[in-house]
C-alpha cells in the first residue's frame, strides 16, 4: 500500500481520533481499493475544491474531523487555502506534492523549482513543459503559515515515522493544519514496486530535517537540500469558536451556538 496512506492510517491510530468521525475529502482520484479499507468516509470532489467542500462538512456537523487530501492545493485550490488559513477553519490538509501534473501529462505544477542540472529530476518532460519551467515555485509551508495555519510540516513519502507523527499531531490540532508530502508522481497509490523508486530515494537522500525552521527558509530549490520537518505549531482560536464567541456576544441568549449536534435535526 502507498506509504502516505499507510502513514495516514497509522497517524489516525496514534492520535486516537475515532475512525468513523474522520471524513476525507480529495480532489485527486484515489483508487477505492486503498481508501475503502481505511474505515473513513471519503468524498472525491471537483479539482481544487476539497477545502471548500470540507468547510461545508465541518460547519454542517462540527463534530467531524475533516482531512483534505489535495493535489491542486496551490492552483485551483489556492484561494481556499488562503482564506481557510485566515479563518482558521478546523481541518487537516495533506498536500501531495509531486511537482507535476503527471496524471495528465508531465506538465509542471506551480510547486516546481526552476531548472538546473539536478533540477531536471523534478521536472516533467512532456506536455506544457516541453521547454522546461521558468516560473518561480510556491513555498507551500510558508504560504500556509503566512495565511494563518496553526500547523505546518513537510516530509517526503519515505519519512514514514515522521509523517505518521505529524499527521497524529495535526489531527489533534484545533485549527487549520497543512502537511506537504513530497512524493514522486501519480502512481503513489499503486503498488510500491511501480513507484519510481529512484526518484523517491532522491527526495529522501536529498533532504535534511530542521524542525521549527522559519518557513521563510524552506523553499525548495534545485541547488540546495530539501528542508523537511515540523515548522509551525501554534495555538489560535478555530473558526467555530470565534463564530460562537462573536455571535454569542451580540445575540446573547437568542443565539444557538454551533457545535455538538445542536444545529442538526
Amino acid at each position: 500500500m502507498n506509504p502516505i496512506i499507510t502513514a495516514f492510517a497509522n497517524g489516525i491510530k496514534k492520535s486516537g481520533v475515532e475512525l468513523s468521525n474522520i471524513v476525507v475529502v480529495s480532489d485527486i482520484p484515489f483508487e477505492p481499493e486503498i481508501i475503502k479499507d481505511l474505515g473513513v468516509d471519503f468524498f472525491h470532489v471537483t479539482r481544487g475544491r476539497a477545502i471548500a467542500f470540507g468547510t461545508g462538512l465541518k460547519l454542517g456537523n462540527p463534530d467531524l474531523k475533516v482531512v483534505a487530501f489535495i493535489g491542486d492545493l496551490m492552483t485551483l485550490g489556492g484561494n481556499h487555502l488562503v482564506h481557510s488559513g485566515r479563518r482558521n477553519m478546523e481541518m487537516l490538509v495533506i498536500c501531495v506534492n509531486n511537482f507535476v501534473y503527471k496524471e495528465i501529462a508531465e506538465t509542471p505544477a506551480p510547486s516546481v523549482s526552476s531548472p538546473s542540472e539536478t533540477g531536471k529530476k523534478f521536472h516533467g518532460t512532456g506536455g506544457f513543459s516541453a521547454f522546461s519551467t521558468f516560473e518561480k515555485p510556491f513555498n507551500a509551508p510558508h504560504l500556509a503559515n503566512s495565511c494563518g495555519a496553526v500547523f505546518t510540516a513537510r516530509w517526503t513519502a519515505m519519512h514514514t515515522n515522521e509523517l505518521t507523527n505529524s499527521i497524529a499531531n495535526a489531527l489533534l490540532k484545533r485549527g487549520f493544519s497543512v502537511i506537504e508530502v513530497l512524493s514522486p508522481g501519480p502512481n503513489f497509490y499503486k503498488d510500491i514496486n511501480q513507484i519510481d523508486s529512484e526518484l523517491l530515494d532522491f527526495y529522501y537522500k536529498n533532504s535534511v530535517t530542521k524542525n521549527n525552521e522559519d518557513t521563510r527558509n524552506v523553499e525548495i530549490t534545485s541547488e540546495e537540500k530539501i528542508i523537511t520537518g515540523e515548522f509551525t505549531d501554534k495555538e489560535k482560536s478555530p473558526f467555530i469558536d470565534t463564530y460562537n464567541a462573536q455571535l454569542g456576544k451580540i445575540l446573547g441568549d437568542k443565539f444557538i451556538p454551533l457545535g455538538g449536534h445542536s444545529g442538526r435535526d
Partner: peptide, 21 residues
Amino acid sequence: IQMEDELASIASVMGASWSGV
C-alpha cells in the same frame, strides 16, 4: 458563512448537504 468566492460557496454547500443538513 461568507465564502471566498462562488466556487467555494457551492462546494461548501454540497459538503454541508452530505454532512446531513
